[in-house]
């Protein structure tokens, strides 16, 4: 008889990433690496996702972790650069600023991917994501100082959306 058996570790760990995150957060909160806390934290990190798995129906699966790592490094660097640019803009003359609303057409469909893209846009040079259209196809972005709208849209799409699309594919 052939049954579609789910391996035991998948039953016990429905969300491995959540478990890992909870474990790390527990250790950081207690600011210790003592063995007792590691065991207690691990038990909590296994039990909490099991109890709450009803609230997390969709599975997250990451493809190409290397692309994700590179994306995170790029974003961290961009945050630093963005802050210097924004600081200059803020301290400069305010009448020269050219604010703009930009509509970005999204190619990415994965909800978590859209969320991370919106957050990334908010943290990087001179742009804050303001709203998402009902059908999740357009993202409205406010720019503090936009000289060339198409250039900004292109940068967002190539620099941030492209790697996220590779990482978050439906599985």
């Amino acid at each position: 008889m052939v049954t579609d058996r789910v391996p035991l570790w998948k039953k016990l760990l429905p969300h491995p990433f959540l478990t890992l995150a909870l474990w790390v957060i527990w250790l950081l909160l207690n600011n210790t690496m003592a063995a007792g806390h590691m065991v207690l934290g691990f038990i909590l990190a296994v039990i909490i996702p099991l109890l709450t798995s009803g609230f997390w129906p969709e599975k997250v699966c990451l493809k190409k972790p290397w692309v994700l790592m590179r994306f995170i490094l790029i974003v961290l660097w961009d945050i630093l650069v963005a802050n210097i640019i924004v600081a200059k803009l803020i301290l400069g003359p305010k009448d020269k600023l050219q604010p703009a609303f930009i509509t970005v057409e999204l190619d990415i469909r994965h909800p978590l991917g859209i969320g991370i893209l919106a957050n990334t846009i908010s943290l990087t040079p001179g742009t804050v994501s303001c709203d998402l259209s009902e059908d999740h196809r357009y993202l409205y972005v406010h720019g503090l100082h936009v000289e060339n709208m198409d250039e900004t849209i292109n940068e967002i799409k190539q620099r941030y959306e492209q790697p996220l699309m590779e990482v978050f594919q439906s599985c």
Binding site: I79, A82, N83, V86, A87, L89, I90, L97, P99, S122, L123, G126, V128, C130, H142, L144
Partner: peptide
Amino acid sequence: FFMRLHGPTKA
């Protein structure tokens, strides 16, 4: 407001 939003979120 939309321009003010940039300061606190990033800097």
